[in-house]
């Protein structure tokens, strides 16, 4: 047994020295890694509207786990955050996710990084709404239901889903 551990020690030392050699050599050869700024006008718009930093998201998925609308969303909230980090607002706005959000603030209150995800969803809605794309029209609603509906429902719907 003792001889075995000794042998393993020796081998790992070998490995270690080889690794060190490999990395040191590589770093001298490759030099600086090139980077590209993937931010664009649309993501900057979302950041200025929400005043939140989507780059601090580390994909724990707590927002999607608590979201009451998650089963009805094309993209889950954490996937939206990931796409935002890559600057792909166009892809997000092709889905129903921002408009399926109920603004219940579960995501914002549970985020370990303190990101107000609900505010980001609202900003995404606003980007779409300000391009004059309403998500809701009164004529689609059953008139009987309109009569029964409480005022807060109508005001809330118009505030959130129309420009």
């Amino acid at each position: 047994m003792k001889s075995l551990t000794k042998r393993l020690d020796k081998e790992s030392k070998k490995l270690y020295t080889i690794k060190c050699f490999f990395y040191s050599e590589r770093s001298t050869i490759v030099g600086k890694i090139e980077t590209k700024d993937i931010r664009n006008a649309e993501t900057t718009k979302v950041i200025t509207l929400s005043l939140e930093n989507q780059y601090s998201c580390y994909q724990c998925g707590k927002c999607s786990a608590g979201c009451p609308s998650a089963p009805f969303m094309d993209l889950l909230p954490n996937q939206v955050m990931r796409l935002l980090q890559f600057g792909n607002v166009k892809r997000i706005l092709e889905t129903n996710t921002p408009f399926a959000c109920c603004s219940c603030f579960v995501c914002s209150s549970r985020c370990p990084k303190g990101i107000d995800v609900a505010a980001i969803m609202e900003s995404l809605r606003q980007v779409s709404l300000r391009a004059k794309k309403d998500d809701f029209e009164l004529k689609d609603v059953n008139p009987e239901e309109l009569e029964k509906a409480p005022p807060i429902l109508l005001v809330g719907t118009f505030r959130k889903l129309t420009s």
Partner: peptide, 19 residues
């Protein structure tokens, strides 16, 4: 303390029905 679907009732009644 979970959401009932809130203002989605008119636009997406399916969400509120499930909730």
């Amino acid at each position: 303390n979970e959401c009932c679907g809130s203002y989605q009732t008119l636009r997406r009644p399916d969400i509120v029905i499930e909730r």
